[in-house]
Structure formats: structure tokens, C-alpha cells
Computed example of a mutant assay.
Amino acid sequence: MKEIVILPWEEREDIKIYIPDYINTLAKEVIKNYNFQVYNMEAVATKSEQGGAIWKLSTNKGPKSLKLLHRRPTRSLFSLGAQRYLVDVKRARVPAIVKTKNGQDFIEAGGKLWFVAEWIEPLAPISKDLEGTKQLCYTLGQFHAQTRGYVPPNGAEIASRLYKWPKKYEKMMNKMDWFRNLAKAYREMPASSIILNVIDQYEDEVRTSLSRLNQSKYLDLIKKGNEEWGLAHQDYGWSNAQMGPNGMWIIDLDGVAYDLPIRDLRKLITGKMAELNKWDVTWVREMIKAYHKANPISPELYEVLLIDLSLPNEFYRFMKDMVLEPELFLNQTTAELVNSLIMTEQSKWPVLKAIQNDWR
């Protein structure tokens, strides 16, 4: 194959899913390494800003997916190894990797890894009501339990966030100062005064959470090591966990990394509460209980979950885009969204207080 380097690309308004011609050409070259005939090739998703894409292939051996992984090849090797481990060793419901004619799990082309996997169908999202959400949490717990013991293949980059929690909290605290300075610099913008009204409080909350983390059993927990804890999905939700043949399937494992598993659960809880526009003690309790049934949470790990929930997570996640184009970001729409996030955040504290002793 030609020495081509795949680069990020800009979307086109006139094309729903745009992939540059040279990448489509390269994709067809990659497919030649597989022992099936392709009748149709349909682009279904892209990560254009990072240089990744997914195609659905109709073949003489059933539907397949072709993925161009956007991360460094050594990092992609880590996630591919995890997918192989989950299918072959744990018999987990994740798509099986299709080997090349030479028995490999992937092809390297354009400076990135490509691979083919089985296309699971039919897949259907589960309901977003409480029962569906509990099912999602139970499936997440199963996934975490199944990933324990994973050892990456030779040459793979070790992707681990297990030891980085304090640094993540420190980064959040530093970014709060960035947000403050930008809001002051663009004080005339509609959202700036609202942000300045809460930023000191949120920075203090992060500082308190960091202190609590350092005083918790976190340092003892991480001594168990990467393989003992297993993998967190890092992007788990209704789109990446769906009902399919024989139960729930988990897809898109590209970002898996060693971590304390409750990081995924925390993201699921805070995201759902943001969707509800308020924190609900019944929902939070039931989500944790459903997860616990599949992957038991120790009192020490529960404490770390509560600490992670205490951060202004959704506010921070929303505000990160502010640093790119503050003069466009700090508009009236943002002001209204920030007000909603603040109200939701205020409703969190009675819920955390109500559940703090659930595991003691």
C-alpha cells in the first residue's frame, strides 16, 4: 500500500457522512486482506476531527463492520486485545473480530489500525425509563467483571487511568480558574455573570473532593493493580449497550482503559440526572443497586464513587468548550443552559446525603 498518512478532516454540509476519497480508497485496499466478498459498503459514522470512521459491509459471509481506529496504533492494539479477550476467553457479548487472510486481527494502513468485526443485528436501544436504566447499569457491572484479568498483547500501549484520579481532579480545579478568567475577560457576554456567580463555589467543591479522595482508601484500592480491576469502557451509554441476540451487547470498545470501574457508573449517573434536570434519590439508589448485583461494590469503593459524584461534573464537561471560542460560547443560549446545570447541581446534595450511609 502507498505510504499515506490519515489526517483529520472537516465535515461537509452537503454530505451527511463525509469521508475523503483517499480514505475510501484505502478502505477498499484494506478489505482485500479479508476472505469475503463485499457487495455494498456504507459509511455509518465518523470521527472526522480525529481521523476515524466506521463502515457497514454487506458480504457473502453476512454483515460486517470495518473500523478505522483514530488513536495511535499502539493504543488501538490495547483495545483490540481487550475485544479479543472478551470474546475468546470470557464469551462476552461484544462483536467478534474477523481475522485477515493471514490470521491477523487488524491491518495497519495510513498510520492507523483498521479491523473488521461481526455486525450484530438486530440491535435495539433499551428504554430510558428506570427499568431500562437499571438494565443498562447491570450490563455495565457484568462488563467490568468480565474484563478482569486482561493482559494486553506485546507491543500494546498500557492504557490506564487507575493511578490518575488525583491529577484529574487537579486539572478540573485548574480549568475552573481558566473559566473564571475567560468570563472576566468577556464580562459583557450574557453567560459570563452567571458563570462568575458559581465558579468560586465549584472550585472549592473540587478542592474539597480532592482532599476527600486523598484521605479515602483510593491509594489502597489502586494497589491491587490494573489487571485486578480490569477495564472501564469510558464511553458507556444507551448507544453503546443495546439489546440484541441472547441479551445485551456492548459495542465500540475503542476507548477502554484500566480504571476503577465505578468511573463508568459515575458518568452514567451524572448524565442521567442531567437528562432528568434534577437529582432523584430513587433513580440513583436503583442504578447503584443494579450495578452492584453484577459487580459488587465494596464500602471503600462506594466512598470513592460518592467523592466522584460530589464533583461539578456536568458543569465542567459542558464548560470545557468555552476555551476554544469564548466569544461565541458565552451567548444567551449558554446562559440558559448554565442556569439549568446550576439548578440540577443544587438538587444533588440532598441526594448524596441520603445515600451516603447506604453501604455502611
Rank of each mutant, 00 (worst) to 15 (best):
Y258M: 03
L305N: 09
D204M: 11
M243G: 04
V206N: 04
L231R: 07
L265E: 02
P312N: 08
S192I: 04
R317I: 08
A257V: 14
N295H: 13
K320C: 05
D259V: 00
G244W: 04
W279L: 02
L219V: 00
P190T: 09
E286H: 09
L268W: 09
W238L: 06
H233K: 03
Q242N: 05
R285C: 01
L210Q: 05
A257F: 01
P312K: 06
L253E: 03
G230Y: 00
T208E: 13
N246E: 15
K267A: 04
L276N: 15
K217Q: 13
D280G: 02
P245C: 01
A241W: 10
D259E: 09
I307Y: 07
P261C: 03
E203D: 13
K267Q: 11
K320L: 11
R263Y: 08
K293W: 11
E303Y: 07
R266A: 09
S192W: 05
L311M: 10
R285H: 09
N226K: 05
N313I: 05
K278L: 07
I195V: 13
M248N: 07
Y316F: 12
D254K: 00
N240I: 02
M189C: 11
A294N: 07
D220E: 14
W249S: 07
Y202D: 08
E205N: 12
A241C: 15
I222A: 05
A191E: 13
W249Y: 05
A294E: 06
L231M: 11
N295P: 05
Y236S: 01
M287V: 00
S310E: 14
M287S: 00
